[in-house]
Design a protein around this nucleic acid. Structure first.
Lengths: 206, 206
DNA sequence: TTATTTCTTGATCAAATGGTCAAGAGCCGT
DNA sequence: ACGGCTCTTGACCATTTGATCAAGAAATAA
């Protein structure tokens, strides 16, 4: 009775499929109720599997959580990676902010899962934050600094500017309950994009 | 054996004191682990009371949570309330943003508690969001709109501008784990204030 | 088909946890 | 000092929940 998770073993067709189903269900559940607030039964029910069956694919609850969390981190970095120092600054930043906003509206669960993790001290992603994320931010801060020194945009603290972009764009996913309640309706993504781009970028124009 | 929570009854000295101790302990615990992730034992231990004793003051775990949550909402609104249409726009907004940032740095627990509540759909504060908060935002959006129409600041979507201020300022409390990890150190509140004020306000100057 | 491996699940467990209760200790006005 | 009210707690309970296991079903290879 070898565990399926075992080292380097080829995943069978049924393995692949069920793991995907579980990760999708787990994202829904974890993002809605948090790690501690979610139960294995909930995830199993949503995935259409029995609890012992689910635990056949992932030995422990935490293993599911880590898997679904890591699965989202890649997606998270992608848009920032392509920020190009050769491109036009405002165009590049417009693209980045727009993409982040689109992700927030299209996949708020992933954003909330991540937010919840950070909110509670990022116990499972310290390495990711201090490693790849930090390196990427340093790299892109340099890009922004180059733009400033070339006189292409106004002076701004690059790191905190990146934080501001994250803060504002993810706000619409993480705090959508508040946004909707205060506005009295779901906001139009188009309108949000226009407003946010103006707020964040107008000050940069020279 | 009348319950202390009972209607309109005068709270004794010891009641007052113990309830305060409990609320303080509960804020720490709930903000760190979320509602579901916190246990009554944890709160009792931190408050220096036995569990049954704690449940003598608050009948149910949820009652503690609601109490500490409501306790923070007032604090939350205060700075926005005083935004004054008669004052200088940039000065008024500078004061508001600065105060929000100071709160984020001085009392991140309250911010995290609130963030966690909203993140999970705001089940306990729907009324607050749709009532007092919405009304206040509408009122202050009007203030901003007046400033725009008077030509005192550049055009901006008032509601989304307020959201952006919230997003950025609270980011430093809610996501402090990420900020610290990416920067490699705790950020200096002064430096953050300068950076954030420039990012959010420079685009408004006419 | 048959043998072997992979999947699936009902039954069950131990620990954690929210909450109760009855009895005792402490405080306070008289 | 005393009587009544407030406060405190050890013991206990029911439920939830993460996790296990042995045995059976389904797939897969021979």
């Amino acid at each position: 009775m070898p565990r399926p998770v075992a080292k380097a073993q080829q995943k069978s067709r049924i393995q692949h499929q069920n793991r995907a189903v579980i990760l999708s269900a787990a994202l829904d559940v974890f993002s809605a109720y948090g790690y501690r607030g979610s139960t294995v039964d909930q995830i199993a029910a949503k995935a259409g599997l029995s609890k012992p069956n689910l635990l056949y694919y992932f030995r422990r609850k935490e293993e599911i959580y880590v898997a679904v969390l890591e699965h989202t981190l890649d997606e998270w970095l992608k848009p920032l990676r392509v920020l190009d120092v050769e491109g036009d600054p405002v165009a590049e930043l417009t693209r980045y902010i727009s993409e982040k906003l689109e992700i927030s509206f299209a996949n708020p669960q992933a954003s909330r899962l991540f937010a919840n993790e950070i909110l509670h001290g990022a116990p499972h992603v310290q390495k990711f934050l201090k490693g790849p994320l930090r390196a990427l931010v340093e790299e892109k801060a340099l890009v922004i600094r180059r733009w400033i020194m070339a006189g292409k945009i106004a002076t701004v603290d690059p790191q905190h500017f990146i934080f501001s972009i994250w803060a504002v764009t993810q706000h619409y996913a993480d705090f959508s309950a508040q946004v909707a309640a205060v506005l009295g309706e779901e906001p139009s993504p188009e309108r949000v994009k226009q407003a946010v781009l103006e707020i964040l970028l107008r000050g940069l124009k020279v």
